[in-house]
Every structure is written in structure tokens, then in C-alpha cells.
Design a protein around this nucleic acid. Structure first.
Lengths: 339, 339
DNA sequence: CTGAAAGCGCTTACAG
DNA sequence: CTGAAAGCGCTTACAG
């Protein structure tokens, strides 16, 4: 293995001169010397030892990406997460950082992994709201959370307007004449993206006098899509005509369940989703859904992180991106006169 | 930051004793001392410095995952890749390794990234066949390639039986009475998974006297699915009734193109895919496809890598996993008498 | 512009 | 079972 020392010996200079020449600190080495050293380094196939540099300089150039470890081995990288991850990795890498990916269980796991490698920054994918205070407190490095609804200030966060997304979904149903509706998502009782989407949906419906009965707000964590569909469509005066689902991924499960139960979409039940993944576009009928720009979210996340690394004193920043409705064919037009 | 030195001072022992106690080298420290040291370390919130350990011990516990950087910003993590990646990361992490993810351009990029962090092993996702010899030669650490068709020996590789997959697709069409067929995939002219799938398909068709004309073997890299469909379905004596596509992801593009062109699947054209992704199951009609077990592939990949890390002398290993047909509804039954 | 010294936090290898 | 010394490959901080 070629080291600075080897190059120094061959060039007849000290290690320090080699270090300076190679690290582009142009102003502190004479031009010709630097050029000579660089050519020797290249010729010898020198590759700097990042561990040594990290140890000596206290700068690892490592950025950690943290995801919740799902103990049940559930979809570790759903389409939404992987699209976001891919973009983030590419941007950060193009800025000269190395990316470590961690599945983490709890707060102490996070601290251990960040500190052990002296990560210079971290991006949190998904829900860490419960522990966000302690994470922030124990890790004095730039951190960017995504989709967080923590009330904590001094935390950088990139998210979308989930509440508005819920409103858009409600309006999509209302505009086509729906009055009795249902909602389904992984309800946890905690504040977060799902709760916001539901809230926006419910508020908009209420304002228009449409109905979202308590028993039509379903948690997919407890029951299967099939069970929920059966309950929802049981004969009743309040039988919903439309169902808003908190993600395209889950909407897909309802499509499949509907197929098995011989329920036609949108004739027997209209559906709207959230995310606008390719998956949703592939469904038939095309899934009407709330679109978020994952690519842009990834770029914003990197922007904020990199700015904080460059200038640790810069204030924490929250960016909430807009959402819009992607209208397709999964909501039936119930207006009289329409067809 | 708490270091071994701090703990040593507090415990009244040398750094070495602390190091041994903490690294579980149980046999070399007296039980009570070790216990006392461990409790002090815990209480002080000690977190080992991985860079320092890596430098001193020449063991980084880092495993690199390498993917091709697509300069055009194409799908960086398609559904297939991300499913595989997620599984690999989880397994390796549960074995105590840290995962670095790299998008790489060429061979020298690979060597640089592996050596700079003293990676103990690497997994290559996708096509690196061209440079596999030089990669292997320059990096004397355990490497596992996936889906490689390099002729090089001494290389560990985990793949699937792509040729058989092509045969299965052909038989699926033949069994339902199809005689004129077409193929589409990202043809590159190089050997690899796509070429094998095509070969198995073509060979099986030829054996049965079915037809796969040269102009019905299409490369999706050059033309859009829509253009290809138009050409394929132009009136002709040899107009194909079935199309085998090299991945579910691309099959989806044909579904969309067919929708725009008012071509009904499978009535106007039957389609078969490859991978068996959730996406394909969501399509209507359900996509008949060749199934590969991505989870198992990921596990095998980790098995081989970890074995080589434990025992560098163990021989390189190639694992070819089986594939099977997932029959759904995208191939029309053309047999006389059937309906 | 260049260099000698000290040190980053840990482990290996050798003594006892 | 325990420890003092040397060193991993690099950079910081101080001299010249």
C-alpha cells in the first residue's frame, strides 16, 4: 500500500509537502513541486487512507442515512423510500461525500452509529418524531429529518403539505358528487403525515357537509384491506362511495382486495391514493392520487444538509413542498346529469 | 469524547486492559476486572472510534455496495434493485458490518472507493462484466458479483438461470398456441442476462418451429415502446401474437403504450415479462412473467461474501438460482377449440 | 514555501 | 492476567 511517506521518499520532500500538494492547498506549495508530487502519486497509484484522514483531521466526509429497522422484515425499501434514497445518495456523492446506510432500532443505536464513524451529517428517512429531541441533543452535527411533525424547533425538516394533500383528495371526491366517504391508512394515534392527511380530508369534507363516519376511518395495521372493504361496503344508509387511502402502495392492496371480492373500481367504490408512484399509474383504472415531488424533496434535503455542514452556525430550516392532484380514473362521477 | 484512555484512568488500569475487556476477548482479562471496566464504559457513554480501530487493526467492518452510475440520471434504484439492496443491507448489518453505498463510473473509481475505506468486501449490483477482471485483480478482498456472465473463473457470482427463464416464457406462449413471437429488451450486443433470456426464448421457439423474425427482436434503448408496438403490429403475414419482454418494468411501459394506441392485451397482443415484481401483479390483465426470488438471491449473496471474509482461502463460488413461471392473464389462449 | 514534532484513538506484538 | 512501547497513515500547529 502506497502511503504519503512512500511518495515523500521518492520525491525527496517531507510528508507534509506531499500532503499539501495532494490536498490541493495550492497556495502553500510551489507550483512545480506540487505538480511533480502529484505525478509521482498518480504513477505510484496512491489512494489516501480515509480512516487515517478521518482520525487526524476529524473530518470523515461520511454522511449517514438512517431508516427505521422494521423488525417484522416488512418492505424495507418501498418504492417511495427507494426513489428518495437513490436521489439523495447521488447528490451527496457528487459533492464528495461517502454514504453509509443504517437501519436503526432506537435512539441509542443512532447515536452509536453516527459517533462511531464521526459522521458529518445525517438524513432521517421516515418517522423518528418520538426521539427527535434526544437525537438532536446527543448529536451536534447537521441533521435533516424528513416528513417530521415534531414540534421541536431548531430542527431541520423537509416535508410536504400533507394537510393540503388531504384537502385535495376530499375536493376530488366532492367535485364528482361524493358525499359519503371513508379513509384508510396506518393509523398510529400519533401526529404525523398520516394524521395530517386524514385531518385535511376530514376538515374539507366537514366544511361541505359531507360525511366521514368514525367507523369509516380505518387502520390498515389492524385489519387486511379485504376485511376493511367488506365492512365498508356492507349495506347501510351511510355506505361510503369513496375511499381515500394514505399511500399508493396501500391503494394497490385495495385494488387487489377489490378484485378478489368482485368489487369494481370505481363503479362500486371510488378510490384516491397518495404519492403518485409508478405503481399507481400502472393500476387500472388509473389511480387518482395526490402527487408529491420526491426528486425535489431529495434535492432540498441535500441542500439543507450541505449548507449546515459548510456553515454549522446557519439556522435550522424547514421546507414544506407543495402537492397537487393527479386526476385519473379511480373516482366515479356521481353528479346527476353526468355519465 | 470518551476514549479508552479516559476509561483506563477512571478504572485504574492500562488502555490495553480496557481494550481487551471491551472487545470481549474474555479469556485475557479477569472476569471481575472486565465487568467493572464494562460498567464504567457504559456509564461514561463510551463509543469506540471506528476510524481509529480501522487504522490500527486493518479491519474496517465496512462492506461496499456498488452500483453503476447512470449518467443520464435514469432510474437509479428500480424496484428490482431496491428490493435486493434492502435485503442485502439488512443481512450484512445484522452481522455487524457497516454498509457504504457507491454509485461508480468505472474501474478506477471502484478501486479508489474500496481501498480508501479499506472495505472488507463488496457486492456488485448489475453489470460490471467488462471490467470484472481488472476489478478482481486490483482488489484482493472478497467480492461478490450478481447476474454476471463474465467467463472469468475465480469470481464469485450469484445469478439466476436466465436462459431457462427465456425457455419458460417461450413455452408459455407455445402452450397456448402462439407461433409468431417477438422479443424486446435493452439489447446491448454484449453477453449478459438479457442476451441469455433472449437466447433461451429463441432456442425453444426454434425447436418447436415457431417464428421469431429478426425484425421482431427489438431494443428498447433505441425506440420507445410505442414505436415498437406500431412496427410489430403492422399488418403482415408474420405479425406476432405474443411479445416477451426482458423485465416487468419494461412490460409496464408496453402496457401503457398499448393503452395509448388502443391495443388490447392480450386480445391484440399477448405479453410476458420477467422478475415478478409487485408492479407486474398490479397490472391488468395480470402479467404472466418469469419469477426470480430476489430475497433468496440477496441471502445467497451475503452468505458467500461473509464466508469469504471469514475464510479468505475458501474457493470462489457461483450460485445460479432457479426461476419459475408465474402464470397470469396476459397471454391469450389461441388453441382451436379453446376459448 | 517547507519541515520536524506531536498526536488523532486504537491495536499489535512483545514482555513480564 | 496485565502493561509499556511502537505504530497504523494522516493532519494540525508551530517553527523556520
Amino acid at each position: 500500500m502506497v502511503t504519503l511517506k512512500d511518495i515523500a521518499a521518492k520525491a525527496g520532500v517531507s510528508m507534509m509537502t506531499v500532503s499539501r500538494a495532494l490536498n490541493g492547498d495550492g497556495s502553500r506549495v510551489s507550483g512545480p513541486t506540487a505538480a511533480r508530487i502529484r505525478s509521482i502519486a498518480e504513477e505510484m497509484g496512491y489512494i489516501p487512507n480515509s480512516s487515517a484522514r478521518s482520525l487526524a483531521a476529524r473530518s470523515s466526509r461520511i454522511i449517514a442515512i438512517l431508516m427505521r429497522d422494521t423488525p417484522d422484515g416488512n418492505p424495507l425499501l418501498d418504492p417511495y423510500t427507494s426513489a428518495f434514497l437513490g436521489s439523495v445518495v447521488q447528490v451527496l456523492q457528487s459533492c464528495g461525500y461517502y454514504i453509509m446506510v443504517h437501519f436503526v432500532r432506537d435512539f441509542s443505536d443512532i447515536t452509536f452509529r453516527l459517533r462511531s464513524w464521526s459522521a458529518e451529517g445525517a438524513v432521517f428517512l421516515g418517522l423518528f418524531d418520538d426521539e427527535i429531541r434526544q437525537i438532536r441533543q446527543d448529536n451536534p452535527i447537521p441533521l435533516v429529518f424528513t416528513d417530521s411533525y415534531s414540534s421541536l424547533r431548531q430542527v431541520s425538516n423537509v416535508g410536504i403539505d400533507d394537510y393540503k394533500g388531504g384537502c385535495l383528495a376530499a375536493r376530488a371526491f366532492l367535485d364528482l358528487g361524493h358525499r359519503n366517504l371513508a379513509f384508510c391508512g396506518p393509523l398510529s394515534g400519533k401526529p404525523g403525515v398520516i394524521a395530517q392527511r386524514l385531518q385535511g380530508f376530514a376538515d374539507t369534507l366537514a366544511k361541505q357537509g359531507a360525511i366521514l363516519p368514525q367507523n369509516c376511518v380505518c387502520s390498515i395495521s389492524e385489519r387486511s384491506a379485504e376485511e376493511i372493504l367488506k365492512d365498508l361496503l356492507a349495506p347501510s344508509a351511510l355506505r361510503p362511495t369513496g375511499l381515500f387511502v394514505s399511500s399508493d402502495h396501500i391503494a394497490w392492496q385495495f385494488y387487489k382486495a377489490a378484485g378478489r371480492l368482485n368489487i369494481r373500481i370505481p363503479d362500486d367504490l371510488s378510490i384516491a391514493g397518495f404519492d403518485d408512484l409508478p405503481l399507481g399509474r400502472a393500476l387500472i383504472p388509473g389511480l387518482t392520487t395526490v402527487r408529491q415531488d420526491i426528486q425535489k424533496k431529495a434535492e432540498k434535503t441535500c441542500d439543507i444538509l450541505l449548507r449546515h455542514i459548510k456553515d454549522p452556525a446557519s439556522p435550522s430550516e424547514t421546507q414544506i413542498l407543495d402537492v397537487e392532484l393527479a386526476e385519473r380514473d379511480s373516482i366515479k362521477d356521481l353528479r346527476s346529469g353526468a355519465c
